[in-house]
Amino acid sequence: MNVGVLYSRIRRDEKLLLSELRDRGHEVTKIDVRKERFGVHEPPQAFDGVDIVVDRCLATSRSRYVTRFVDAYDLPVVNDPETAAICADKARNSLVLAEAGIPTPATEVTFTKESAMESIEEFGYPCVLKPVIGSWGRLMAKIDSRDAAEAILEHKETLGHYEHKVFYIQEFVEKPGRDIRVVATDGEPVAAMARSSDHWLTNAARGAETEAIEITDEMADLVERASEAVGGGLLGVDLMETGDSYTVHEVNHTVEFKALNEVSDVDVPATVVDWLESRVRGVEVTA
């Protein structure tokens, strides 16, 4: 098959994927989205002969638009633009998880600092304020006091662009110093790791320590349901342990897997390529 890979930066994750595809004899068409012009009627020439497109854009804005265009060109794209749109936006992400009845942290969205303050006071301290668009734990605030809340809200309202005036406020979940990342393909878990840190943020991108963990039946069930809630695809589902259960805080649509691949016995890129091959076979069968 010929796999189009949308990118603007080849990280270790993309390199693993490209190597696996090439090792299996697949053709790879690298498409640097910075250089392309996406017309509303015709796809750029770069897409000629491509059987499936994999979105590995690092910039969320590019990912959301480019997947829409590729879908409009009637090319299969991983992930689906609707999945990208949901996962890129923490508010939409939380909404679909809650609508599907999946345990997810209590969250409120407000549009003024006064109503944000009301939410914060009601959640109590500490609670968490996150940007609706963003990754790697950036610009997330654990709010420990009213003084801190007032300062952060004022900064956001004064200095932030319009997306920072959508205040996404969430209960603080007392997790056991770690959270869990499960990479899944259409709801089927590939592998899981725990990300541990003394810091309240446990993103691998922030240097959290990672270790492979077993996937329990409950985790697998939540991953399957969370995947379905956002429309399926190649996803990273993030869970926190809450005593004897779990809560799903978000689902990521351009999932990074190099850290998971390093700690897991599972060959993550190989499993992802197995899944891509099955997707293309499925398209050929239904065409």
Binding site: L58, A59, S135, G236, H253
Partner: peptide
């Protein structure tokens, strides 16, 4: 030189 990190970069 690679582009600077932008706000919407990530997973």
């Amino acid at each position: 030189e690679a582009p600077e990190l932008e706000e919407d970069w990530g997973e």
